[in-house]
Simulated scan of single mutants.
Amino acid sequence: MISTISGGPTLAGTSNNSIKHYVRSTYAHQVFSAEQGRLPKTHKSGWAPITFCEEEERGVILPHDDPIIIRADISNFDVGRILVDTGSSVSVMFAEAFNELQVPSHLLDRSITPLVSFFGEVVQPIGSIHLPISIGLAPQRTTITTPFLIIDCPTAYNVILGRPAMAQMKVFISTHMLLLKFPTPHGTGTVRGDQLGARSCYAPAPVQAGTERPEDPREESVTPQAEPVEDLELVTLDENIPDRQVRIGTSLSQELHSDLVAFLRLNSEVFAWSHNDMPSISPEIISHRLSINPAVRPVLQKRRAYDPERYEAMRAEVDKLTSIGFIKEVDYPTWLANVVMVRKGTKGWRMCVDYTNLNRACPKDSFP
């Protein structure tokens, strides 16, 4: 869930000059008002005053802190689960809903800046597109064309309607009554929020009896090991190297047992008995590169400190991987990802890398 969204296309533009001009225009407007003692004349649209009264509370379950979830027509489709969010600087449509609109993907504008969530996480949109959106019932109905950023991430909503679209429709909001009102040439239009739909978006998943909270993968917990469905026996594949052994089931028939052992001994070279038996793969055959968003700044994680046992395990693992050419040393003066040591279920340590920041900087990658 993106709690608060900033970034994207706004009236201020994207360049530094346009943003500075946008700020200066506000300052000039305030200075003019102070000198003249009055506000400059603006174009009057002629719509009637919009008010809220106590009778409009009917049908709303009180007290509540539910968000405003509405329905609207977007590109001639009836779209539900639209979150009205005054904290969002852009209107967002999620990829699953966008695909249902049957809008050709080549119409998307790909030259867009990333979004920044409340926690500082960077979200890279797929693209942006201008779509018509209509709210209200005829004749008190308003229609505008507004840009939507298309985001591919799991969410309970189809669309997040941001400030620019609401300002364009001159929407007045009562969060207490879950009610939107807006002027139209035929009077004041109203849209009531779906309180049941809002609560279903926030409904927690049922917790079964005896279940515990999900474990944090960063915690050093022992992973339960899968158990075999039958008893196993050790079979030595090479009498000259007695430690090269495999396990096979004891429920096999004598004939099948003999055939299987003979087959394994004949093909014992396909097993990787050590890291040296796993040579590197040539990049001419296959390679994988991370698609990192160039707009994301490198992150220098705070260096973690470990006890001597973990340091010794790190040193042994790095030396082993370096000696066979699996890894190489590279200096990154402005970027660092910490090593995380996780205790194995049997004995020893498993060395992992904290790639949390790197994952946030990469768009969705289909590489398994």
Rank of each mutant, 00 (worst) to 15 (best):
D66C: 11
L232S: 11
P204G: 03
M1A: 10
I285H: 15
V222C: 03
L180T: 14
L39Y: 13
L178W: 03
Q36G: 01
P114F: 06
S25R: 07
T26I: 12
R81N: 15
V229S: 13
G87N: 04
V92D: 14
G162S: 08
R310H: 09
V330C: 08
A209G: 03
G120K: 03
R38N: 12
D194I: 07
F263W: 10
G37N: 08
W349R: 04
P298I: 01
S251Y: 03
S117D: 09
L101Q: 13
S89R: 04
M314Y: 10
T175V: 13
A203K: 11
A361H: 00
R343N: 07
I19Q: 09
W273N: 14
T142F: 00
L256Q: 14
I173T: 15
M314Q: 14
I160S: 09
M1T: 09
G348V: 06
T211H: 01
E312M: 05
I248S: 13
G59H: 10
V299C: 02
V23P: 00
S174T: 06
K364I: 11
G189Q: 06
V23F: 04
K44N: 15
A34H: 05
L83T: 11
Q225T: 09
I61P: 04
R315A: 14
A95Q: 14
S291M: 06
V270E: 00
Q195N: 15
P228N: 09
R310N: 06
V79D: 12
Q301G: 01
S280A: 13
G187M: 04
R38P: 10
G127W: 04
D152I: 01
G87C: 08
L264Q: 14
R218V: 00
Y157T: 13
P217V: 00
N76V: 08
I248V: 15
V342C: 04
I112T: 15
E312V: 04
F119A: 10
L83W: 10
P147F: 02
P368H: 05
P114I: 07
K328C: 05
S33I: 06
E255Y: 05
H186V: 00
V340H: 01
V330L: 09
S88V: 06
N267A: 04
L260F: 08
E121C: 01
I2W: 09
E56T: 07
V191F: 07
L358I: 12
P139M: 03
D231S: 15
A72S: 08
F98E: 09
W349D: 11
S268E: 06
T14W: 01
I241A: 10
M177R: 15
G345M: 02
P104R: 07
V92E: 12
L196I: 10
K181T: 08
I135P: 07
D277F: 00
G59T: 13
E317V: 02
R81M: 11
V318A: 10
G162K: 02
T211C: 07
G8Q: 05
I61Q: 14
A165T: 13
V103E: 13
A337C: 10
Y157E: 14
E329P: 13
V116A: 02
F52L: 14
G325P: 03
V340C: 04
E230L: 07
E230Y: 08
S91G: 13
A203C: 12
K347A: 15
P9S: 12
A28D: 14
G197R: 03
I248K: 13
G210C: 07
H275K: 08
L321K: 05
F182G: 12
R71T: 15
I150W: 05
Q245Y: 02
I281S: 08
P183S: 04
Q254F: 05
